[in-house]
């Protein structure tokens, strides 16, 4: 006979910490890693995506190489690379805490995926718009700043939402490099309490809730920047 027993959550771990408060700390770590990684991913991904749509073949090449490298190596391998390899080759990185290395790894991995979305978004804008803006006398920078990017940004929002959810999910591999996030909590606490199903349930629920939060944020953002009768507008 097997029944669920949640009493472990109120048990003391160390000091004033309970399994519940540890769970909350772990959740916070998951969300913090994800947030920092997403900021890196968004910044670099947007930049690389834009480079790939310019008329300059060197810029395109840089954007392409960047994207292909970080897209075609599994995220776990990239994390190991940042943790075990890079600090040996470039000793300066050995000064960074594991947390920072995991954030960089996750951020760069995700930047390649965002770069794909941004490129596809910009390329789906009819080329007339680019030419029209150039014909109006705008510089390349101005045509991106005032014509292409505002549209592209709205276009890539839905895929960006799923990338944000992906960052949260992928942060679960950070446990492999000593980060005390939710998955690490699941594995450690199920051993300490011998309550595997309850521990997995509550951790899974928090991942689920995190995804839900991202979803809700994106709905709010999408609504607030939506242009009436234009792409991205809800049906």
């Amino acid at each position: 006979m097997f029944t669920l027993d949640w009493s472990f959550l109120s048990k003391k771990v160390v000091g004033t910490q309970t399994y519940f408060s540890w769970l909350m700390t772990a959740w916070e770590t998951t969300l913090t890693i994800s947030l920092f990684a997403f900021v890196i991913a968004f910044t670099l991904g947007f930049l690389m995506g834009v480079l790939r749509t310019t008329q300059n073949k060197y810029l395109v090449l840089i954007g392409n190489i960047w994207t292909e490298i970080f897209r075609n190596i599994p995220v776990l391998v990239q994390i190991f690379l940042w943790y075990f390899v890079i600090p040996k080759i470039f000793p300066i990185f050995s000064k960074l805490p594991a947390f920072a290395l995991a954030v960089i790894a996750l951020g760069l991995f995700t930047s390649s995926r965002i770069s794909e979305q941004v490129r596809a978004g910009i390329q789906s804008i009819p080329t007339d718009q680019r030419y029209a803006s150039l014909a109006l006398g705008l510089t390349t920078y101005q045509s991106y700043r005032f014509v292409l990017l505002p549209v592209a940004f709205r276009l890539v929002l839905p895929p960006l939402t799923s990338e944000a959810m992906n960052v949260i999910k992928n942060s679960s591999v950070a446990f492999a490099v000593s980060i005390a996030e939710l998955t690490m909590y699941a594995i450690q606490v199920q051993e300490e309490t011998a309550r595997g199903i309850e521990v997995y349930l509550v951790v899974t629920a928090l991942y689920f809730i995190s995804a839900l939060i991202v979803n809700l944020i994106s709905i709010v953002v999408e609504k607030s920047i939506q242009i009436p009768h234009f792409i991205g507008g809800k049906k």
């Binding site: 669920l4 629920a205 839900l212 979803n215």
Partner: peptide, 21 residues
Amino acid sequence: KNKFVHNALVFFAIFTMTITG
């Protein structure tokens, strides 16, 4: 979105049943 929440509840209800054997 309501369905999202609803589905979540159903999902967890399955596991709150007892497992015997």
